[in-house]
């Protein structure tokens, strides 16, 4: 046990964890600012789209529209929370608040910062999934106990998106670059990743592209868990998200070093 603890304490995960702790402390200190929007929004969106729009849509297959939508929302909230924090949030910490600068005067290195920020984005994603799950079950949209696995799944989704976002943060020359990332990448993906409707009727090319983007496997994985319909394919999606996170972390760490150590 002791050697495991020593190994852990000298690993990048542990050093990243200290960066994670810094962000946790800052959020707990200002929790009132964060909480309102995070809690209220999922209830409103589920009610409006799930039941308001859902009344016109009817069923998708033999699933009520609100039930179809809920897991998609869990995945997309995970995406938004992780991405927002690892773009605007991280850029602010790096550029305006000089948080990274102070960290670099300690044994922390740029790669640790990237890992810590990605872990933090993932945590925010997991927390958001708890809120959406509560909202969904309060509307009677959750039946399987496997739905609880949507929380670690949201962590994984958040890890992938936060890692990708850190590549942008490490390379952006102004905070305005984040706007483009949202308008060109995140928002369009949000509409063609099976969150709101199945992809069956989309052109072949859009469908292929969609499965290569992270939100489509994320939504499918979450939907399988929340509905309790497990399949072997889910392992493939987990691997896909893990691979995206790993590659993005590696690239982000490279650019972050180049940006901070000069």
């Amino acid at each position: 046990m002791a050697s495991v603890s020593v190994a852990l304490r000298s690993s990048f995960i542990w050093r990243g964890f200290h960066v994670w702790q810094r962000n946790r402390d800052a959020v707990i200190r200002g929790w009132k600012v964060e909480l309102g929007g995070m809690v209220i929004e999922p209830f409103v969106v589920l009610a409006a789209l799930g039941f308001g729009l859902g009344a016109y849509v009817g069923n998708i297959g033999d699933t009520r529209y609100a039930e179809y939508l809920a897991p998609g929302l869990i995945a997309s909230y995970a995406m938004f929370h992780a991405t927002l924090d690892a773009t605007y949030g991280a850029y602010l910490r790096m550029d305006s608040h000089h948080v990274y600068e102070a960290m670099l005067f300690t044994p922390v290195e740029p790669s640790d910062i990237v890992v810590g920020e990605a872990m933090w984005g993932a945590t925010r994603a997991a927390v958001s999934s708890v809120v959406v799950l509560i909202a969904a079950s309060s509307f009677g949209l959750v039946s399987s106990p496997f739905a609880l696995l949507a929380i670690p799944c949201a962590y994984l989704v958040g890890l992938a998106f936060a890692s990708i976002a850190m590549v942008l943060t490490a390379t952006a020359s102004t905070i305005g670059a984040m706007n483009n990332f949202f308008t060109v990448f995140i928002i369009p993906m949000f509409y063609v990743s099976g969150v709101f409707f199945p992809l069956d009727h989309l052109p072949e090319s859009v469908r292929v592209l969609s499965w290569a983007l992270p939100l489509t496997p994320a939504a499918a994985l979450t939907r399988g868990l929340v509905g309790g319909n497990l399949s072997w394919q889910m392992l493939l999606w987990v691997a896909e998200l893990l691979a995206m996170a790993a590659v993005a972390l590696y690239v982000a760490a490279f650019f972050m070093r180049r940006r901070l150590i000069k």
């Binding site: 800052a26 200190r29 910490r93 608040h97 000089h98 948080v99 600068e101 102070a102 005067f105």
Partner: peptide, 8 residues
């Protein structure tokens, strides 16, 4: 440069 953390 003053690098105190304004979030804490």
């Amino acid at each position: 440069a003053d690098s105190l953390d304004p979030g804490l």
